[in-house]
Design a protein around this nucleic acid. Structure first.
Length: 428
RNA sequence: GUGGGCGUAGCUCAGUUGGUUAGAGCGCCAGGUUGUGGUCCUGGAGGCCGCGGGUUCGACCCCCGUCGCUCACCCCA
């Protein structure tokens, strides 16, 4: 017996995607790319890892993700890098580095890495589709970004989801509010949940997001950010909500909506699926980040974007029992069956594929019966049979695999007429 | 980081109070005469029973550890 060989598995919290699930992925990404194009966004590809400073911007970084969930490492030259935990900061870093003309509208598809315990809908490597717009604070662009998400979700078949919106104000009005909140919390520390009783002062806003009854009891007596933002921020927010309404997108104001990254200003939003359980029900979210470009060393530049988790979208679609209608056609046109000893199939499939047909074949010189079975399972519409007889006559037999009466639907054509005959049959 | 559940063929799972060659369904492969797919029939391949240690005459089964999966808290996509 041979010695045992070490086997490997995908790392904890990661997963491989093979067919048929990968076809769903292809469909989602292709649909998103199409929407991005429709909304006039360009693709932006940035590195999988960045200087840790891109995600952990000095003092005042309160994001849980940046604090304790990043994959950080030193390379061979002791440069400190982090695997990207999210999509926005790298795109903004690229904006600052290359200063494209504004408004700059970019979309991306990327893995994101977070070191946390995996569970349903949560992975150490998940994948996000998203967009960013830099260089304008026009509420119309907030509406555009949100509507892109909304229409995309609709296009992939989701129905049971809701849009939650809130405004974080800008630095001045938010800090004034945080002071008010701080005073309120200080006066009610004993009422907070065990988790927040000791750490509430590090980031008072997080307490608003706490789902514990005790914290909710305290905060609902206190001030809400949306009621304390300045007139400009309030006006901006109202125009976003009105803009959404004008194109038929309903939104619910959720004053407790506090997103996980500290760079948000003004508009923040989240799409939640009612088909998923509460813990991991966010299928997408984002907001405005009018100070981020500055924090990354650029000129003050407004920005807004959103990210959506591919895994979450697929879970939500599953949970909604959406018809598995194909977003992308994965059906073969033809399957070539070759029983000659000459490997005619190699020439045939090349000819057919060059002519634009999705064509499969079998290998290893299997029996005709075996090849027919494979052809059937492939889902191909037509089978092309070449045996010694056809080959000698310069012909090919075309058989319709989808026809119910499989005794009859078969005929032989000259090889020169093949492409023409095939396209005729496929267009029937 | 904390806690619960679970690890047996490619997949979904059985496995009797610990007892000798570990099973099923699906999938895969090959046949059911002379070149033809959906059903059916027959046969076959494929398992360090997650890994390591312990108890025992004997362990898939009991005990300990470990790794992994999964679910929840937390956090988020």
């Amino acid at each position: 017996m041979s010695d045992p060989v070490t086997t490997f598995k995908a790392p904890i919290g990661t997963h491989d995607v093979l067919g048929p699930a990968s076809a769903q992925w292809e469909g989602l990404v292709a649909t998103f790319a199409q929407f991005a194009f429709r909304y006039d966004f360009e693709l932006c590809i940035t590195p999988m890892f960045e200087d840790v400073g891109v995600f952990n911007r000095g003092i005042g970084e309160h994001s849980e993700v940046a604090k304790k969930e990043m994959y950080v490492f030193a390379d061979r030259s002791q440069r400190h890098y982090a695997l990207r935990p999210e999509g926005t900061a790298p795109v903004v870093r690229a904006f600052v580095q290359h200063h494209p003309t504004v408004p700059w509208k970019a979309w991306y598809v990327t893995p994101a890495f977070r070191y946390e315990r995996p569970q349903a809908g949560r992975y150490r490597q998940h994948h996000q589709l998203g967009v960013e717009v830099l260089g304008t604070d026009d509420p119309a662009v907030d509406v555009e970004v949100i509507s892109l998400a909304q229409r995309f979700y609709e296009a992939i078949g989701l129905r049971r989801f809701r849009l939650l919106v809130n405004s974080m104000g800008h630095d001045v009005c938010r800090s004034a509010y945080v002071e008010k909140l701080r005073r309120h919390l200080l006066a009610n520390v004993p009422g907070l949940c065990v988790d927040h009783r000791d750490v509430w002062h590090e980031n008072p806003l997080r307490v608003l997001d706490c789902k514990k009854r005790s914290c909710i009891a305290v905060t609902e007596q206190g001030p809400m950010l949306i009621d304390h933002i300045c007139a400009d921020c309030r006006d901006h927010f109202d125009r976003v909500v009105a803009g959404l309404l004008s194109i038929g997108i309903p939104s619910t104001i959720n004053p407790r909506l506090v997103r996980g990254f500290d760079y948000y200003t003004r508009t923040t939003f989240e799409f939640v699926s009612d088909a998923l359980d509460g813990a991991q029900n966010a299928i997408g979210g984002g907001g405005r980040y009018d100070r981020l470009a500055e924090q990354l060393g650029g000129k003050p530049t407004s920005g807004i974007g959103f990210g959506s988790g591919i895994e979450r979208l697929l879970l939500a679609r599953d949970a909604e029992d959406v018809q598995p209608r194909d977003l992308i056609n994965r059906t073969l046109d033809l399957f070539v069956i070759d029983t000659t000893d000459l490997d005619v199939a190699t020439e045939l499939v090349d000819e057919l594929r060059s002519a634009g047909f999705a064509t499969g074949r079998s290998y290893d010189r299997r029996s005709m019966k075996a090849q027919m079975k494979v052809a059937d399972k492939s889902g191909a519409r037509l089978a092309l049979l070449v045996g010694p007889l056809e080959d000698a006559a310069g012909e090919v037999t075309i058989r319709d695999l989808r026809s119910a009466d499989f005794e009859q639907r078969q005929r032989t054509v000259a090889r020169g007429d093949l492409a023409l005959e095939v396209s005729k049959l496929l267009n029937d």
